[in-house]
Design a protein around this nucleic acid. Structure first.
Lengths: 191, 191
DNA sequence: GTTAGCATGTAAGGAGTTACATGATTTT
DNA sequence: AAAATCATGTAACTCCTTACATGCTAAC
């Protein structure tokens, strides 16, 4: 169910909010952010930047020479339309917001999202993970002949990892709710 | 670094070792095995099966009618050359063996791999994860201005998850070594 | 009667990788 | 003298997804 989607685009938009950057530097930051195994290639980043230029989400500045090699370095900035797009995407609470690839990126920029959106995305993510746990457990119950040591060990570890993430999300949701509650007038909560 | 690679092929080969299966059933098993978010589409499975037919890794049997719909159901079997290929891949100890997508599949079929290979793959995987931890920690040390609550919270959780997986691997490695030691003559271990 | 599950496929397209191409500077 | 880091790109390709196409049976 949908693992696609402009992963890089949102991350670039978010990073450029903190200040202008050139491609090479951008890739390093992106790798830190997407981290955990994914190493983005230039063949993927540069075409993505060109595409974003064409759709006016960012603008380029070729006039800055690189300090180390004399070569012209291309510095990118978010445009106003890019800022709008970023805001729009960060306020989105559709299913794509809590899928594996996108969740991490959105979470990284959570400070830029309204508290209400944060809560919805966290809850959506938790529900998705709980659905997976339910599915795996159901399949396991219907298919109890699995005797292989390694296959079941992998399963056990997988389930535990997901359960751990669910607990992590629950803590964050709780904190987010408490934060919301002392912003709204106490005693005026929806009954 | 390389997340591609015939992920499905190895999994299909492994599953068919346990007995012949048709596409629809194969997809269900595959989804359980790759689990955790990945839901394989038919548009991905059927062409892969055709390709494997062409390269003679599997053979088809069209003569079996489906019990539920009367429609002809296509049952696949591993060929001898498929078994060879599976053995070859399961004995492989190159870097692809411990990358994210492939590691899980190889691990699932670890019973079919020689104990030596298991040990190498587990150690390779652990080393890979430790390299990632080192890289992330290094980047963090060089870049200490990260003050954003959410970004650093995500990082913390990521590091903890990877550390957990490293501990899991260490336990498995230990068990695998003990298993090897009581197979080789005791007291003859390499000094 | 309509939803869910069984069952197999194709065509178009997206997102990203690998490999190639180039070249300067700094560190080992 | 070699390797690493800086810096930007293109072309070909791969793997996989989405959407489409078809039709039957069982359960609600």
């Amino acid at each position: 169910m949908s693992r696609r989607g402009e992963t890089i685009e949102l991350a670039v938009l978010g990073l450029l909010h903190e200040g202008p950057l050139h491609g090479y530097e951008l890739r390093k930051r992106l790798n830190l952010m997407l981290g955990w195994g994914r190493v983005l290639s230039y063949g993927s980043l540069y075409p993505a930047l060109k595409k974003m230029l064409r759709s006016r989400l960012i603008s380029e500045d070729t006039s800055v020479p690189a300090p180390v090699t004399g070569r012209p370095r291309i510095v990118y900035r978010v445009t106003e339309s890019g800022r709008e797009e970023f805001r729009r995407q960060m306020a989105d609470v559709g299913p794509t917001a809590w899928e594996d690839d996108t969740f991490g990126i959105r979470f990284s920029f959570f400070s830029s999202a309204p508290s209400e959106t944060r809560l919805r995305v966290l809850e959506g993510r938790r529900t998705r993970l709980e659905e997976r746990l339910a599915r795996v457990r159901g399949d396991l119950a219907r298919n109890p002949k699995k005797a292989d040591r390694y296959a079941s060990e992998l399963h056990r570890h997988g389930v535990e990892s997901v359960e751990r993430e669910v607990r992590w999300l629950s803590d964050l949701i709780k904190a987010e709710r408490e934060h919301q509650e002392h912003r709204t007038a106490p005693g005026t909560a929806t009954p």
